[in-house]
Amino acid sequence: MKRVLLILSVISISVLTSCTNNASSKIKPENVAMANVRDAKAKLLPVMTFDKTNHDFGIIDEGDIVEHKFTFTNTGNAPLVIISAKGSCGCTVSKWSKEPIAPGATGDMLVTFNSNGKPNLQNKKVTITANTTTGKETLKIKAMVTPKKKSVASGIPLSK
């Protein structure tokens, strides 16, 4: 028991004496200046603000190809550059302007969904990589795809 008290006393004394240094004296003025410049630049990033980020195509027939145009505005303080837009599967394709979008300007992202081979409820995402603060933006689409009718004998889809 005496050993435990002795060890605790030694630890307490070393903790109390090690915290006597003034931490503010260790701050270098050049580091503060660099942090201020960095923080000022962080405010000069583009912001991709969409009118809406979800779209429901409703009920469509399997094999239909549908598209929706998502509109966005650069509400930030720097030109917006879209690097890529990838769908969660090969059935979703996106098209966008390759030119930088100035602050205050609007742009469009055309998302196309091919429902061939995708019966029933479909939920897909498009992940946009851009020079925004988050670096990634997400759009979502969904559709209820009515399956093609199949012939009972062959299992082959009947044409419309």
Results as ranks from 00 to 15, higher is better:
143 A>C: 12
69 K>D: 10
114 N>E: 15
92 T>H: 00
126 V>S: 09
28 K>L: 14
106 T>C: 03
144 M>T: 11
27 I>G: 04
132 T>Q: 10
137 E>A: 15
79 P>R: 02
51 D>E: 11
50 F>K: 06
67 E>N: 10
100 P>C: 09
90 G>R: 08
82 I>C: 08
74 N>C: 03
140 K>A: 13
116 N>P: 01
111 V>N: 02
128 I>S: 00
52 K>Y: 07
90 G>P: 09
137 E>I: 09
81 V>K: 02
150 K>Q: 05
112 T>R: 06
89 C>E: 12
22 N>C: 10
65 I>V: 15
70 F>W: 06
33 A>D: 15
118 K>R: 15
66 V>G: 03
71 T>A: 01
93 V>D: 09
108 D>L: 05
32 V>L: 15
75 T>L: 06
64 D>S: 07
25 S>K: 15
19 C>G: 11
117 G>R: 10
126 V>G: 03
110 L>P: 05
56 D>P: 10
124 K>D: 13
93 V>S: 07
76 G>C: 07
76 G>T: 02
66 V>S: 13
82 I>H: 00
77 N>H: 08
149 K>G: 05
88 S>E: 04
44 L>H: 02
132 T>H: 08
112 T>W: 07
146 T>H: 11
139 L>D: 00
100 P>D: 03
121 L>H: 10
